[in-house]
Design a protein around this nucleic acid. Structure first.
Lengths: 192, 192
DNA sequence: TTGGTCATGCGTACACCGTACACTAATGAG
DNA sequence: CTCATTAGTGTACGGTGTACGCATGACCAA
């Protein structure tokens, strides 16, 4: 389908030129079409960006789905590390997944607890499991999941805004914070 | 000075039209100048944006400097709340302060611990104080400060990306996470 | 006063952007 | 074959950042 070809072209342009360099004209050229042809398949540029967001989210879901750790806490640690890898190794795809504004239609409802997102649902299941195992205290599962997500997104956002001196410092602080966070969820008295 | 007039115009345009609507031509018109006149005072648009970032940061520093709470933990709670207010009440200024990429020249050095930013330095002083008071456990001060910042930035970033169903949900989760975070820093056994 | 230097602002022009509009070429059903 | 639907195109418009060269005026030395 032509639409897929356009999407592939868009992903290629995004990869090589970033969001700044992602233009209708460039995508069209890459797809071997005239610029206006894209409008047969996407209402406008925003809709194309939205498709890229979807693609980025799918990539992330696949990564999360591939985490193999058995122990729920280890699983959450692996999740956190995978997130860091994703952000650094595929920055544009990552940004598409996490920073692009969602159109009204696909926003989480107020109970996004329910886990409209498979990745969040998976994480919440592991958190519940850790609580059942007695590895975590009894804090609200949604709160923990969202906090973990915010943590990661915050670090990456600060990194994107060039608030860290170096990637090395960024990674070190990211890992330290993640470790401390998971640590803080252990039952009282067990910390450190 | 003309430069100040341009900056004021830019701030006004930013406030009323956001970053999307911030164009050289609009700023020039607002300042009563021709578009090209701006280039006598700013190398290019990026440099103008950088000046806006500086302005946003100053606004934030002023807010932080104005927090009056005596108790260090209360002070940190007030900080967190002020951050939320700032993000919601002055979104563009907030974004200028926290999301605009810093030019290489003004990046934090690797020991940004040292607190190139007055706000971070203030926060770290309060954290040290809380530790001295026995209100916090002995985690690394820098780690706590950066984690707190990442927390806030992450929530706001997710909000900007429209990942929350509503402002109400956003605020509720933000506050819950902040509360849980500060709580987790208390000495073992005292949590909840 | 004259002349020169420098800072300031302006007008024009260019390349690039998203996309509205009107068009043609291809496809497939009856 | 006819005709409606779809896919793709070319042109054009209003917007963007900004390079370039010129005009103006303030200042100061001769």
């Amino acid at each position: 389908m032509t639409k897929d070809r356009i999407l592939s072209a868009a992903k290629a342009v995004l990869e090589s030129a970033g969001f700044e360099g992602l233009t209708i004209r460039k995508v069209a050229q890459r797809a071997g079409l005239s610029p206006m042809a894209l409008y047969r398949h996407f209402k406008n540029k925003d809709e194309l960006l939205n498709a890229l967001m979807q693609d980025g989210i799918s990539a992330w879901e696949a990564i999360v789905g591939g985490i193999r750790a058995r122990d729920p806490v280890k699983w959450l640690e692996a999740l956190s590390e995978a997130y860091l890898d994703f952000a650094l190794a595929q920055p544009h795809k990552f940004d598409a997944a996490f920073f692009l504004p969602a159109p009204a239609a696909r926003r989480f409802p107020d109970d996004f607890a329910a886990g409209r997102s498979p990745a969040i649902a998976l994480a919440m299941a592991r958190i519940d499991q850790a609580k059942a195992d007695g590895q975590f205290r009894d804090e609200p599962t949604l709160g923990i999941a969202v906090a973990l997500a915010a943590y990661g997104q915050g670090f990456v956002s600060m990194h994107r805004a060039k608030r860290f001196g170096s990637d090395k410092q960024f990674k070190a602080l990211y890992r330290a914070a993640q470790h401390q966070f998971l640590d803080s969820l252990k039952p009282s008295g067990k910390s450190k």
